[in-house]
């Protein structure tokens, strides 16, 4: 199998639990060295997809190849090359962080002579070097989550399944986590399948986004593609706050009504500025600029903005609901 082959290639995956269809004819292609975000409401099937792709659950129909292996026939060989951070940390609170990691070093076949160094390395990477010998029961939720991530990275896997990895992390730890995930793919060439509810995190990290609904793919593409497909075109205009009302009136008279006006001091605006939003495409920018200049408004900023992933996600679910 060539290195160009995708890390994950699934076709027509179906998994039922009784009468409930948890995964419905799922098709997924994840290129090596990329980050793919798997989005969806609770119960949309994200965790089941991870369990299927890592060979923990069998599919009722369909086929999949993960790192060139059949997850259900070559499950253990595959699992040696994957690292999974589960939604619940799945660590024993009565043991120390180090003892928890020692178990998994043995299970993942980390060579005995490198075991302690590997454990020290991941503990340090996730800021737990000073607490490695303490019981997990004494850890905060964020520390427990970081230990779960340390376990996931212990054997330097080729493919990471990260299920809600930033749950419980404080803002700085979450930022550090995002940097780590980005480095996994951009620097080390690892592949990441990121299941998350944090759409900002997905927006910042993901090369591709897959939105699941009721176990089926509701939308898929790069964040830009999805924004173009599901998000409305928009212009953002920053003007001095004192001129905001006049600017909005001038635009309305030119048949360019604003959808919102953010007042001065509203984060993240510059001090003394106001932000106007218009649901028009970039091709309307010259007309907007001319209108504001004619109205003697000082134009501080004028920029076409892509729809955020949050807007895309809402639009996808709204469309599905309507359907």
């Amino acid at each position: 199998m060539s290195e160009e082959a995708p890390a994950i290639h699934a076709r027509g995956l179906v998994r039922r639990f009784g009468d409930e269809v948890a995964v419905d004819r799922l098709a997924l292609r994840v290129a090596r060295g990329t980050i793919t975000a798997l989005l969806g409401h609770n119960g949309a099937g994200k965790t089941t997809v991870v369990r299927l792709l890592n060979g923990v659950l069998a599919a009722d129909a369909g086929e999949a190849t993960v790192l060139g292996l059949d997850p259900w026939r070559d499950g253990d060989a595959l699992r040696r090359r994957t690292g999974v951070s589960t939604e619940r940390p799945s660590l024993d609170p009565r043991l120390s962080g180090r003892a928890n990691l020692r178990l998994y070093a043995a299970l993942y076949g980390v060579p005995v002579v490198r075991e302690e160094a590997a454990i020290d390395g991941v503990l340090a990477r996730f800021g737990l070097a000073a607490r490695g010998d303490d019981r997990v029961a004494t850890f905060s939720r964020g520390m427990t989550q970081r230990l779960a991530l340390a376990r996931c990275a212990l054997h330097d896997p080729d493919l990471y399944f990260l299920d809600e990895p930033s749950a419980g992390l404080d803002p700085l730890a979450a930022r550090d986590l995002r940097a780590w995930i980005a480095d996994l793919a951009r620097v080390h060439g690892k592949t990441v399948l990121l299941c998350t509810h944090d759409l900002g995190e997905a927006q910042r990290l993901a090369d591709r986004v897959v939105v699941l609904r009721d176990g089926a793919v509701a939308a898929e593409g790069t964040p830009s593609e999805l924004a173009a497909r599901f998000g409305a075109d928009r212009l953002e205009i920053d003007v001095p706050a004192a001129q905001a009302q006049g600017a909005a009136r001038a635009l309305a008279e030119a048949d360019l009504p604003c959808t919102s006006v953010l007042e001065a001091d509203a984060s993240p605006l510059p001090v003394g500025a106001a932000r106007l939003r218009l649901n028009v495409g970039a091709d309307a920018a010259p007309r907007v600029a001319r209108t504001l200049v004619a109205a003697e408004v000082d134009l501080l900023r004028l920029e076409p903005v892509l729809a955020s992933l949050e807007e895309v996600y809402a639009a996808v679910y709204a469309r599905e609901r309507a359907a």
């Binding site: 699992r79 619940r88 660590l91 998994y104 299970l107 376990r151 399944f161």
Partner: peptide, 12 residues
């Protein structure tokens, strides 16, 4: 204790 899932994802 909810510690089984990580074991099931491990190559054991």
């Amino acid at each position: 204790r909810g510690t089984l899932e990580a074991l099931l994802h491990a190559p054991v």
